[in-house]
Amino acid sequence: MMQILVDAIVYAAEIAIIAVGVALSYSILRFANFAHVQFAVVGAYLSFAANQLLGFVLPVAVLVGVVATGLIAVLVDHLVFSRLRYISPEGKMIVSWGVALFLRAAIASIFGGAARVFSTQPVNLSLGGAYFTSQDAIVVGTTVAAMIILNLLLYRTRVGTALRALASNPDLAATRGIPAGRMIALTWFISGAYAALGGTMFALQTRLQPNMDLIILLPTFAAVTLGGLDRVFGAALGALALSLVQNLLIDVDFGSLVSDTRWSVPTQFRDFVAVGAMVLILLLRRPQEGREAR
């Protein structure tokens, strides 16, 4: 049981940090940004390049990757989305697919399709009968720290207040002198940087490949949907809930409960749970909730 909990927390930590960015950008930009998942992949590759090609130590390399991806996100906003502020959210969503595809092709062209791995030597640890690696601990620690920093930024600083004002009422915020353009750029930077951090940790735990986006996409959007598209920390809770259900389903030996043979849900069904949970939650939402927002 303890092992299931630990596994769930580690997986949740990887997803949560990407999901938080989706929710943050949705709350301010008001569209589901599918390019966000691609920022995670771009960030992971940039961290990898900084580490293996430029020879930075890993923490510095991750920092380089994170900042660079944040800047790329700002650039994407400047070149594309800043010119499309007034089209429908559906339109922006479709454009974000275009951006995602472009970034994916760029990564695949530069780095090739083969899988790559970060060379790290994690130490095995155990706690209360559950086994994990030092790397797992670092991933969880980083996520917790990142969440605390984002919380402090949003709720303890003037910039955070401005961002929240923009999220709750853009027109009123602009009237009160909040520089919407700069705040939107900041939103892009933060969500891009967080996506890069999450993507790097995801790649550290598994491996780096261009089709990582499809592996991250569904659990991320499932987590965000569970938490509510525009609730920043709801996304983190959504990731935790989702991960718990996934790991419970996969790790528990259902076969022994009803017969003598061991049988549990195969690991491939992890994504299944994610998509299933997402669709279920969407279908069970209260009817008028969506319509009100228009």
Binding site: M93, M278, L282
Partner: peptide, 19 residues
């Protein structure tokens, strides 16, 4: 899904295809 907003409708159809 008919009563959902477009964002969610996009996610539901994407999810259904992936399922």
């Amino acid at each position: 899904a008919g009563r959902l907003t477009q964002d969610y409708w996009a996610l539901v159809t994407l999810g259904a295809a992936e399922i």
